[in-house]
Amino acid sequence: MAVKDYLRERFFPHIWCAGCGHGIVLNSLIRAVEKLGMSKNEIVMVSGIGCSSRISGYVDFHTLHTIHGRALAFATGVKMSKPELNVIVPMGDGDALAIGGNHFIHAARRNIDITAIVMNNRIYGMTGGQYSPLSGYGTLATTAPYKNIDQSFDTVQLATAAGATFVARTTTYHVQQLTDLIRRAILHEGFSVLEVMTQCPTYFGRKNKLGGAVEMMKYMQKATTPIGSKAKQKNPELIERGVFVEKEQPEYCSEYEKIIQRAMASGS
């Protein structure tokens, strides 16, 4: 199928700003789904609130646009009732790790078969550029005009510690890797977390004088390196890209099915 066959064309051009990385994530997501050869009816996309969460409105899958930070809770309900469906949850960094931080760590702990795509643009874009849990120490935001003093989470370490069984990171510059990692995250049976470093030229870029979308993407190209590269040994500041965790562990819905079977067997 062509890319447009996966879109709700009536909502295009989309609302995202010129050069917004969320469009690149949408682009890669559709190509990953196309490669997997999945039917649109097999996919449920559940999102919360924020620029990134608008992604679910643009794809012609089953979609739910829910409340801020709680997308994973809704997604858990969908997955538990229809485990045969593939559930994908696109989230912003604030939606996933601040407002929805608890849902995030507990979905990871349960290892429920959901694919969480954390689109990390380091800012709350939709509401006017407030600093987010991934803005980072020393950055500028509308709510941090004298610089941000909050340290940021490391999404990969957080997801790993919480128990996610697939954890990866890439950027919107590395589109081929992005498509491949989305594909692998969807295929993985268990809770998958993919952090995508993405650009918000309108707020994060402008506030921090990082230039436009092109300059921000060039920065992500330079600031990242494949996991375990020699460049990382020389320069520990570099951010690693790739798959950090990929392991098998009992999946929540299959375990729940076993509970049902046990209860049915003993309850007669």
């Binding site: 062509a2 890319v3 447009k4 879109l7 295009f12 051009p13 989309h14 995202w16 010129a18 050069g19 917004c20 990385g21 969320h22 469009g23 690149i24 949408l26 682009n27 890669s28 559709i30 190509r31 919107t172 510059y173 589109v175 081929q176 498509t179 979308a213």
Partner: peptide, 12 residues
């Protein structure tokens, strides 16, 4: 690469 990186899905 232009098609894959286009945030507006405008290039084919």
């Amino acid at each position: 690469l232009c098609e894959l990186r286009c945030p507006d899905l405008a290039i084919e």
